[in-house]
Structure formats: C-alpha cells, structure tokens
Simulated assay, not measured.
Amino acid sequence: MSYTIRRLGPDDLAAYRAIRHEALANHPEAFVSTAEAFAQRSDDDIRRSLEALTVFGAVLADGSLAGINAFMRNDGAKENHRGWMIQVYTRPNHRGTGLSRALVEHLVNHASQHVIQLHLGVWSENEPAIRLYQKLGFETYGTEPRYLFVNGRYIDEHLMVRFLDKAPGA
C-alpha cells in the first residue's frame, strides 16, 4: 500500500467529507459530532473547517483517503502552549498497517513546531488506539466519566497528553 501524508485543503473537500462522515457513522462513540449533523453541513462550512484546522490525510494513489487526523491549537494567551489532536480515524482495511502510527507521528512532528504539549481524548474502550498513543509517548492524566451518551449508553473518555519538550516517558 502506497500513500502520502499531507495537509488537506479545499481541493480535498469531497474526499474529506466522505471519510469524516464514514468515521462519524461507523464510530459514534468516538466523536462528539454526529453523522447526521455533519451531513447537513454545507461545502462552504466544511471548507472553512479545513482552513481553520490543520487536517492531515493519508492519501492513496487514487486520491482517496485511508485516514485522517487534525491539529487544533488553543488560542488564548495563557494556553497557546497547548494543542489538540482531534478527528483521528483510519479506515478499517488500513488498520494494523502502520498507517495510523504514521499519521499520528506526522501530526506530532507538526505540533512540535507550534506547541509544547499535545492533548487528545480517546474512548476508554478503544484499546488499540490507547496502546498506539502510549507507544508514541502519550500518558493518561484523567478520565472524563459519562463524556458522551451514545445509543443508550454512557461513554467515558480518557484524556491523554504528550509533552513535546521532553523525551517520551521522561
């Protein structure tokens, strides 16, 4: 499998819309947004999101996306040292190939040019993602109980951080 990781822009709108909708529809427990609400967003609204966030995609040779993630930086003067990794999703047929790791490492490298710590939230039952994040130097610092209510059940979210100005595990 051959792919390149790059920042997505307005020309990637259709591919981004497709993979983001897939992520929200197939894993409602992993995201605050819903597939239904996302489907209602206009192309202009999604274009603005692609400009406001730094969205990375693993782009296959045919132009489709195998995975995405996004970087968001806090704006306030007292918290602009912190950033967030959000919208993490890899299509099922590309999981276990190293693509997810490459996407996260790419985002971490980008974030290290802008912030000194990178945060994320992950569904407490998503063991593969948690293991990957731990391997890449993220540590759990808390759990938000009942973070979401999805399909009749409460979803807890682990909060994780990686301090980019320290060696992982230091």
Rank of each mutant, 00 (worst) to 15 (best):
F71W: 03
T143R: 14
N26Q: 13
G57D: 14
H110L: 13
L164K: 05
I86V: 15
A39Y: 00
F38T: 08
I46S: 07
R162S: 06
S112R: 12
Y154G: 10
T4R: 10
V88Q: 05
Y89R: 09
D45H: 01
G9V: 01
S112H: 06
I19M: 05
K78S: 14
N26M: 10
G67K: 00
Y141C: 06
H27P: 00
Y89I: 08
R17V: 02
G9N: 12
Q117C: 10
E29G: 13
D62R: 03
D44R: 04
A167H: 06
L99I: 03
S42C: 00
V150T: 12
T34R: 05
E127S: 09
E105A: 04
G9E: 13
P10G: 14
M160T: 05
D43A: 07
I86D: 07
L13H: 02
W123Q: 15
M72F: 05
T4K: 11
L148R: 10
Y141W: 10
Q134R: 12
P145H: 15
I86C: 11
N69P: 02
S49Y: 01
A111G: 00
K135T: 12
N93C: 14
G76Q: 12
G57E: 06
G76K: 13
R41Y: 00
H114I: 11
E79A: 11
H158D: 14
P28N: 10
S42H: 00
D156L: 11
V150G: 08
R17K: 06
R6Q: 12
R41N: 02
T140W: 03
H106L: 01
Y89Q: 01
H21E: 07
E139C: 08
L164P: 03
P92I: 09
G98R: 03
G96S: 03
G96D: 02
T143A: 02
R20C: 11
Q40V: 09
W84G: 05
R153C: 08
V32P: 03
E127C: 02
H119E: 13
M1V: 14
E51R: 13
S100Y: 04
A15S: 10
K135M: 01
D11M: 06
A52I: 10
K166R: 15
A66F: 05
W123P: 06
V32L: 13
D165V: 12
Q87V: 11
N109T: 13
R131N: 11
K166S: 10
S64I: 09
R146E: 12
D75A: 15
T97S: 14
M72W: 05
M72N: 08
Q134G: 04
T97A: 00
L99Y: 03
V55T: 06
